[in-house]
């Protein structure tokens, strides 16, 4: 193995570990604000995995939209719905938590059983030029209809969120 392969492998395991650590934090941390920060750690690690896969545009989108918008929105909602200073959390987990772990183990086992039987895929050689140009061309030609539908969805979500979150005073 050459030095680049070592760096790549170490980066992969580091980022994968960080992502799983962040996910565990989302499950375990009692304070929901800390869980949100842990979610941000996982989202950053996933962006790093995208870079390892050669998709730097997606990594940028991930950081901008997930970390910059969604995670911040979640943290805002946490602060709006909880009194952080006088917080007393009686129970973090619902009763369904007893079911959750067996469900997770069963899901993992079933998928791994199927995956171990399948032929392991191999990565194609990476192109040296960036994906951004071809991605833009694909979005505006082959995938034009879903692109327009998703813009309509965003508009609908925007209007719906304003109507839902508005104070009821007529």
């Amino acid at each position: 193995m050459n030095i680049e392969s070592w760096i790549y492998t170490i980066a992969f395991y580091g980022l994968a570990g960080l992502a799983l650590l962040g996910a565990l934090g989302v499950i375990w941390l009692k304070n929901l604000f800390h869980a949100g920060l842990s979610l941000i750690l996982a989202l950053f690690a996933v962006a790093g995995l995208f870079i390892l896969l050669g998709c730097e545009f997606l990594a940028g989108v991930q950081v901008l939209i997930y970390v910059g918008a969604i995670a911040v929105l979640l943290l805002f909602a946490v602060m709006l719905t909880q009194r952080i200073a006088f917080q007393q959390i009686l129970r973090v987990f619902s009763r369904a938590a007893l079911v959750a772990v067996p469900v997770m183990v069963a899901l993992f086992a079933v998928v791994m059983l199927v995956a171990l039987k399948a032929e392991a895929p191999a990565m194609q050689a990476f192109p040296t030029e960036s994906f951004v140009g071809p991605l833009a061309a694909a979005l505006l030609s082959t995938y034009l209809l879903p692109f327009e539908v998703v813009s309509l969805l965003l508009l609908g979500a925007l209007v719906g969120a304003i109507i839902l979150a508005r104070k009821e005073e007529d």
Binding site: L20, L24, V92, A100, V103, F108
Partner: peptide
């Protein structure tokens, strides 16, 4: 797969 399973646990077990 692991990330999906952990997310599923969070969905099923969190009370908030």
């Amino acid at each position: 797969l692991l990330l999906f399973a952990l997310g599923l646990v969070a969905v099923l077990s969190r009370r908030n």
